[in-house]
Simulated assay, not measured.
Amino acid sequence: MGRTRRGQGELEGQVLGALREAEGPVTAAWVRERLGGDLAYTTVVTILTRLLAKDVVARERQGRSFLWTPTADVARLAALRMRRLLDGEQDREAVLASFVTALPPGDEQVLRALLEAAGPRGPDPRPGTHADHADHDDTQV
């Protein structure tokens, strides 16, 4: 029996999902057990620490360990990944255009409705960007 290797993004989503199922703050050991116990404890702590750096979980010290709680949902985590990918591209406009033209009609309608609800936005303050959108605070969705 071989183990299936999970990617970082998949692991982050699973860890965040487990935290969201908890009825309160939990330990890394609880998260590990909730995910089936096949991950090393250190892997779970590493993923939790990455999620902390992305501001989607919080931790509080309890004795010699930490208790972890979610501060965002899996959708927020996916949005952060999408944003990070987009920020790494030279031609944002081309990437966004390609993304929009590849959307199925239902998703395109949802995106249009969301953009309409957001209202008009000013130019992007970051140098070298072409797309017009609001000054984003990465701590909010």
Results as ranks from 00 to 15, higher is better:
R20F: 04
Q14F: 04
G36R: 05
Y41Q: 14
R34A: 11
L39V: 00
A18I: 12
V26Y: 06
E33G: 10
P25F: 08
R34D: 01
L19M: 06
W30A: 13
E12V: 03
R32W: 01
E10Q: 14
V44R: 01
L39H: 12
G36P: 05
P25Q: 14
L11D: 00
A28T: 11
W30N: 08
V31W: 05
A18C: 11
E10H: 07
T43N: 01
E23I: 02
E12C: 00
E10Y: 02
T43S: 07
D38P: 03
A22C: 07
V44K: 01
E21R: 15
V26T: 12
L11I: 00
L19Y: 04
V15Y: 03
R34K: 14
G37K: 10
T43C: 00
Q14K: 08
D38S: 13
Q14T: 02
V15T: 08
Y41M: 11
L35D: 05
L16Q: 03
V26N: 05
V26R: 11
L39Q: 12
T42K: 04
P25D: 15
T27W: 04
Q14V: 00
G17Y: 08
V15H: 04
A18F: 06
A22E: 05
G37P: 08
G9N: 09
E21T: 15
Y41P: 11
Q14E: 15
G36D: 05
V31K: 02
A40N: 07
L16N: 01
G9E: 08
R20Y: 04
A22T: 08
E10M: 03
Q8Y: 01
L19H: 02
R34H: 13
R34V: 00
Q8A: 13
A18E: 14
G9W: 05
E12M: 10
L35K: 06
E21P: 01
T27G: 06
E33S: 14
E10C: 02
E21S: 15
E23K: 11
Q14S: 08
G13Q: 08
V44C: 04
A40H: 13
V26K: 04
G24Q: 08
A40E: 12
L39N: 07
W30R: 13
E23L: 07
A28I: 12
L16V: 11
V26I: 11
L11Y: 00
V44F: 01
G9A: 12
G24N: 12
A18M: 09
R32Q: 15
G24P: 08
P25C: 09
G13S: 13
A29L: 14
Q8R: 12
L19C: 05
G13L: 14
T43G: 00
L11E: 02
R20L: 15
D38I: 05
L35M: 09
E23H: 12
E23N: 10
A29R: 12
Q14W: 04
R20P: 03
G13A: 15
D38T: 13
G9H: 10
A40P: 03
G36W: 06
R20V: 05
R32C: 07
E23P: 04
G24F: 08
E33Q: 15
V26P: 06
A28E: 09
V44W: 01
A28D: 13
G24S: 13
T43I: 00
E33L: 13
A18T: 09
D38H: 14
G17C: 07
T42S: 14
A22R: 09
